[in-house]
Design a binder for these strands. Structure first.
Lengths: 239, 239
DNA sequence: GATACCATTTTGGGATACCAGGGCGGTACC
DNA sequence: GGTACCGCCCTGGTATCCCAAAATGGTATC
């Protein structure tokens, strides 16, 4: 395996960054799962990953354990399975998000230093008609993550980040819909405006509505596309 | 290693339960950390764990990765360190708990089926003067976990469970204080009563106050005991 | 006595060998 | 043809082995 040509996959050696094999495998595998290159419900074998990324089973195993705690993969008896897209989960996730994100935005609204808000607003504005969908997808998630970061609370931040990770695959559907995207962005800006004014209640109310609306849009388009997704071999678990 | 006498530590073969080495190591190591048998801040080496539990490094490493995501251990450069008791973390944890537990208790109060409440109440009542402190400690955490389970929301449940795990070691201090314990139990019962009445707002208010009070009691006694803990070799990070 | 330097040991990261259990396919028997 | 059985193959679980980097400790130099 030392001279395995596949090992060329190894880190592109970014200056100053020494990436371990485990981090490599974890990152690449996560990207493949979140980018739907590996379909929800698909079976994974350690040997396949091993040869795919040119790493031995030791880092592969470590990466799998990490991804399991992120909820991106699960155990199917003895083997590994990419987590299916779960409609019921989306509902529960929205409830959880509302709890942690509202708490975070309230803290953010209470801050004296509002400079972080402008950074986030600029991030939103960096997306325009020419921006590829993948970028909208990423920024849409980062909005919530960065907002949570403003709270200064590591646990709220981690909760939001985990939730967004789990939501990530389903959100590709929302991103496809021009109208839904516009609505989401408007709501994002409205939340930011309330935070800027220091109006915690208003920010909480708006964010809460945004999360519920986002869930509804998602559930609807997922329900509509269920057949299409299944046709592509994606496991979609009903609510 | 096949004939390592330490391997006798292996699973006691409970009927019907086949415990893998990884699960064994993870469980035992977690118990040692949470039970303060391994002090906060202490260094861990994979080789020590390996010989201590009679398992090879593969399951040991898997267990360490798990415990890392639970926040019980962390990396110290290249090595592993038992997470110190962190006063600042307790504050942030209380904020997080308030967010998720209040959300959970509101859902629980909205349930038609209130039978779960009685089970939790019975659990609380199972503790009396003769009950060992370790049991009070466990039940005190399980109260919050089971309450969250009533919500039926997996994410809220996981959030509460994770938070209680992180809090667990510090809570040994609260359990030592008879008065604090009495107050906590009274507050627990009050929350349950509100849930039983279906009064979500009241339950939320009471639980919120309980979490804040618990944090204050904890921070105070931890601050007082800091010297003693440090004398026992426990790393305690100031707020 | 302090400090810089070097050899040795120790540690985590990675690779590989081996094993037991389960799945799958073929075959023989009914 | 159908079904039960048997054995091969693949999988994850585990135990080692090797390696490079980092810690350690001793020593020589100033």
């Amino acid at each position: 395996m030392n001279i395995n040509p596949a090992a060329v996959n190894a880190a592109p050696k970014k200056s100053g960054t020494t990436m371990s094999q485990m981090q490599n495998v974890e990152r690449q595998l996560r990207e493949m799962i979140l980018g739907l290159e590996i379909g929800p419900g698909e079976r994974l074998t350690e040997r396949w990953i091993e040869s795919r990324f040119g790493a031995s089973r030791t880092p592969v195993r470590a990466a799998l354990l990490r991804l399991e705690t992120e909820g991106l993969i699960g155990r199917d008896g003895r083997g590994w399975t990419v987590a299916p897209i779960n409609l019921a989960e989306l509902g529960q996730l929205a409830v959880y998000r509302e709890a942690v994100e509202v708490a975070a935005v309230r803290l953010a609204a209470a801050l004296e230093d509002r400079s972080g808000v402008e950074v986030i607003a600029a991030m939103l504005d960096s997306c325009d008609a020419d921006t590829p969908r993948g970028e909208w997808h990423r920024v849409g998630m980062d909005f919530h993550i960065e907002l949570a970061r403003l709270s200064g609370n590591e646990f709220l931040l981690r909760g939001v980040r985990d939730a967004m990770t789990r939501l990530s695959r389903a959100r590709w559907l929302e991103v496809r819909d021009e109208k839904a995207l516009g609505r989401a962005w408007a709501e994002h800006h409205a939340v930011l405006a309330a935070v800027r004014e220091g109006d915690a209640d208003k920010a909480a109310r708006l964010l809460s509505a945004h999360i519920a609306g986002s869930r509804d849009r998602l559930v609807t388009s997922l329900h509509d596309d269920r057949r299409g997704l299944r046709a592509r071999g994606f496991a979609v678990v009903a609510a």
